[in-house]
């Protein structure tokens, strides 16, 4: 079915509205429905990102001739091919097994960030926790300097110095 508004795209949003007793049906494409506030853009199109995950990989080097997409996690058996279809990983270790492949995806879904900042479990030792907090403070300092918030920057610098 064609979009009623632009008469170009396929209608994917079908609405029934009842105004003053009259029932009207509206068939719109995603773009037109969004413009009229009848539909919303849902999240980051993860599937699109995932489809590029496999195509944009550099050649495997050395004697390891297994194609990237067939490389499997030794622990759970997850492959990149399967991940790109199901969007879920198989075990915590996958983040290390597929780190190179996942990094660009992680960066794009998290606004360029690649380092955790925030809560750490109590099982994490004090030294590691310190490193995590320092990374976070440095990142905040960058933002403050970029926005010319010098008071905040000074406060953050003090915090970093005290932690080190």
């Amino acid at each position: 079915m064609q979009c009623q508004n632009c008469k170009n795209q396929t209608a994917t949003i079908h609405l029934t509205e009842i105004t003053n007793g009259n029932r009207t049906e509206t068939h719109l494409c995603q773009t037109c429905a969004q413009k009229q506030g009848l539909a919303v853009q849902t999240q980051i199109p993860l599937n699109e990102l995932l489809s590029t995950l496999l195509s944009a990989q550099p050649e495997a080097t050395g004697e390891d001739s297994t194609p990237q997409e067939e490389k499997a996690c030794p622990r759970c058996g997850m492959t990149l091919r399967r991940f790109s279809k199901e969007t879920l990983l198989g075990c915590p270790q996958d983040y290390e097994v597929f780190e190179k492949n996942l990094l660009p995806l992680i960066q794009r879904t998290h606004n360029g960030n690649t380092e955790h900042c925030g809560k750490t479990p109590s099982s994490v030792g004090p030294e590691q926790d310190k490193q995590i907090q320092l990374a976070a403070l440095r990142r905040q300092l960058d933002v403050a300097l970029r926005n010319e918030q010098y008071e905040t920057a000074a406060r953050l610098r003090d915090q970093i110095r005290n932690l080190q």
Partner: peptide, 27 residues
């Protein structure tokens, strides 16, 4: 905090709390 006293959650020094989908990673 209370639950963490009883179990160990998957945590990575760089990526934070590990989740099945990378879109929830970190916190």
């Amino acid at each position: 905090d209370q639950i963490e006293k009883k179990v160990r959650f998957a945590f990575h020094p760089r990526f934070g709390y590990l989740t099945a989908c990378p879109t929830n990673l970190g916190t």
